[in-house]
Design a protein around this nucleic acid. Structure first.
Lengths: 363, 363
DNA sequence: TTAATGCGCGGGTACGTTAACGACGATACT
DNA sequence: AGTATCGTCGTTAACGTACCCGCGCATTAA
């Protein structure tokens, strides 16, 4: 049995002050690189601070400078099954933060690609200390993005990424892996040559394009006997998705399996249901919402790839706060592994869906 | 675009004091249920606090009462592939805590069931404010457990549970689900009547027993064509596991698939290798370590059920700290969903294993 | 020589909360 | 009636840090 210690006793600014026979004011100036202290005493202070292992008391600091960080989460209302829990995750992380006062504003807009620009602009004028954002169409947002970053407001992408936008980091599921997993799961189930289709969201969205890449690559590597039909791009609107699904499923080259890579899968499932194809066509969906539960239980949907919105939200918020509290600490981009939800592990996720009042559990 | 506000301006103890025309001392007594305040004024204070939305300034609090919480993590050294990252997760959570001073001691012992009792006893004498612990054999530990709890030290179980032990909560994977998933995955792969075996750890350990229950139930429900051979119980020691595996695999009723429900799977895999059975016998393992990576890549191991030790460690620490900071806030027992690692998503987990210096990512 | 300027530094205050201490009235007891 | 006790409440000193004020000294200008 061995015991490893860590984080010894306190070493305050006062200790180093009268270890040097100086005043705490001088120590403060030296430690914070303020003017009004000679180079010599500054060096002495710094050396003594190092020697004594000075660790600032963050409680005292944040009490004194009563700055309350203002951070904004600019997120769409649709698709609620994904973005509501994402917001909950952010809120949960905010509630957990100890020793720091801040305000958290949720700014909402209808859906990805519709109103996001305006919402972001409005957040920009409010001079937040940090912004969480889901980039729907990175190209169109690039200008606003760079302006906000230039004005000194750190931005953090969540749920999708916008590379080269100046964002300090991104928190997403690894979309490529998500697609590849869908392919692998289908390859287990479909042993004979078959046609598979994908229904995706806006391909301008980085994550949707990545999922498709992963899916195609996965098919090529693991299932050469499966051929990929031309991709169906639905534009995040339920009606649109329904019409396109009907067209796809009524075509003469009807697919034997479909991979729905957007949380917006309900219209597609409705189309499958109406054409009596549920159970005959293998389906892999994305995310989880109540209507999906019986379909997974009965095996009509093979699996769903859960993007863990609460976990993303929580991590995103923590990452942003971490950056704001210590600017020169490197921030990390997080790529989550999606959860594969099958029949066996469905109850674990479904119970949480059914009873959100039980408090959410970040898995 | 709508904007929802939350967490407005500060509402301190002083505000509610002179809103009531009383003193801050009275408010403090009322809010903290201390003696020396009449029931009437106490009620008035509480109501006003509610009305003004009083939120204590934890920075000021932890500055004033300069208590540094002492918490201990009593964990085995073996199996390192699991418990090292568990410790890292705890450490990571500790590093993230802002505005609170505390000490974290890691107390180690050889392995589950060997030295844990002594380690726990030693931790008990040190009067920690909280203890994280993995209960290997709950029955034998029950007495010590209750003594520690009675002496007022909150205990939190991590990685396995000890029901009815007085622990404030547990953070584990849902072991039953883990077993059921193994069964479901095997049922996908084995279409014809086959024999499956399980190699587990100490069955006195709650989690191992649960996994077995889940596995058996999963087989019964999803794969009636698979018959379960008598369970092999290895006692957390590599040599033991190797000998038992050899015996199992040389028997005339050799299994067509094995589910290894302990992180201690390397000896079993060695036995399989030596008997040239890798690739011919379907294997599902638990947890992830470097030697497993090529086996998953080549398909010789079908899948591994990753118990996410870092995530467990982080959550366990956060839960314990949360309880210590606010005693009457209810603490929640967390049941994680294990990650199913297949070929497609392996790189996501493997990269982290290969490069722990990159900082760990809690997925 | 004296006044003005500037640099280096000491001292003091405030941040919101906790807890010790003391004040004050009411009641009980000698 | 005087004293002791108790319940209720007000006052105040810290906790460690950030920041402002102003003092002393040296240097320079008048």
């Amino acid at each position: 049995m061995k015991s490893t210690k860590k984080s010894g006793k306190a070493a305050g600014i006062r200790e180093i002050a009268n270890a040097l026979g100086t005043s705490i004011g001088t120590v403060d100036r030296a430690l914070h690189g303020r003017s009004g202290v000679s180079a010599r005493t500054k060096a002495r202070v710094l050396r003594m601070a190092e020697q004594l292992g000075y660790k600032p008391n963050i409680a005292a600091r944040s009490l004194k400078l009563n700055r309350s960080l203002r951070i904004a989460a600019v997120l769409p209302r649709e698709i609620a099954a994904f973005f509501d829990p994402l917001r909950q995750g952010i809120q949960a992380a905010a509630d957990e933060v100890a020793g720091l006062q801040f305000t958290l504003d949720f700014i909402e807009y209808p859906r990805l690609g519709s109103g996001d620009l305006a919402a972001l602009e409005s957040a920009a004028t409010k001079k937040y200390d940090g912004i969480l954002f889901t980039p729907g169409r990175p190209r169109e947002l690039a200008a606003v993005f760079r302006r906000i970053v230039a004005q000194g407001t750190p931005m953090l992408c969540v749920a999708s990424d916008a590379p080269d936008s100046g964002r300090i980091a991104a928190v997403t599921v690894d979309a490529y892996t998500s697609g590849a997993l869908a392919a692998e799961l289908l390859s287990h189930k479909l042993q004979t040559p078959s046609r598979v289709a994908t229904i995706t969201g806006e391909l301008a969205t980085f994550d949707h394009a990545e999922k498709l890449r992963g899916f195609a690559a996965g098919l090529a590597m693991l299932a050469p006997h499966l051929t990929l039909l031309p991709v169906v791009e639905s534009h995040e609107s339920p009606e649109d998705a329904y019409r396109q699904s009907m067209a796809l499923l009524k075509a003469k080259t009807r697919p034997d399996a479909v991979y729905i890579s957007t949380a917006n899968s309900l219209p597609v499932l409705r189309a499958l249901e109406e054409l009596k194809l549920l159970g005959r066509v293998q389906v892999i969906t994305t995310d989880l919402y109540p209507e999906l539960i019986p379909l997974l239980e009965s095996g009509k949907v093979l699996a769903t790839l859960y993007q863990r919105p609460e976990a993303q939200g929580k991590t995103a918020f923590e990452t942003l706060i971490g950056h704001l509290m210590d600017k020169d600490k490197p921030v990390k981009t997080h790529r989550f592994a999606p959860h594969i939800i099958l029949r066996s592990n469905l109850p674990l996720f479904a119970s949480r869906l059914a009873n959100p009042a039980a408090g959410l559990d970040i898995r």
